[in-house]
Amino acid sequence: MDYYEYIDDYISGKLSDELKLDFENAMKLDDSLKLAVENYDEAKSISEGLLEIDIMGTIDKLSSEKNLQKQEELPTSKASIFTMRRIMAAASIIGLIAIATWWLGNNDKLQEELWTKNYVQIIDPDAVKSGDGVEGKDPLATVKHYYARNYNEECIEAVDQLIQNTDNRDTLSLAYLYLGDTYLKRSYHQGTNQWKEAIAAFEKSNEKDAIKRKQWAIDLSSY
């Protein structure tokens, strides 16, 4: 009798009393069977995980293909531009393009590196917790609300309105900090190139954080 066939039922307690007794006696004589019962949960867990392994395998394969495509696309499109007669001229142009591309690419990379290393969103727990709308919120809370959700245009508009309607220095200082940072986010994520606006806003803020963020804006704008 192959008792392995009954492991599932033994584990789930579905064996008849008689068969259960036989099974347990068999375990006493067969160390492998005993170990199989001990390892049952791990084996089932591995079997269950095979689905994840299979799906991730497919996704990883697609990722590799995508990366390969990216690498192949650039030289192919460049080569098709030039005819054989112009190879010499083309070579020099390609050289220039390569340098420019490297320079721009490198700049992008450096900018991304700088951003990734340094940038931290201003986190205000109350703004994060607040509900979806801005109804009933005071102007500064409205600014923070939009800022926390990356509604950049709405945030800038809310700061503009706040500036026009308050002369409280503390409120203005915070508002300019949020304004500067919103310009910073827009410039980096949306490519709006509003580094100068960001710097100007940070300069109007008295918050400690503004000095650091102004420096980021200066550094990021140089790429």
Binding site: D2, Y4, I7, L35, A36, E42, A43, S45, S47
Partner: peptide, 22 residues
């Protein structure tokens, strides 16, 4: 399923590392 599961159980018996990895 029975044959495959038995094979897997034997693999676990022969590769205790696999158990540790989990």
């Amino acid at each position: 399923k029975h044959n495959c599961f038995k094979e897997l159980l034997l693999m676990l018996e022969q590769n205790p590392d696999l158990k540790m990895i989990l």
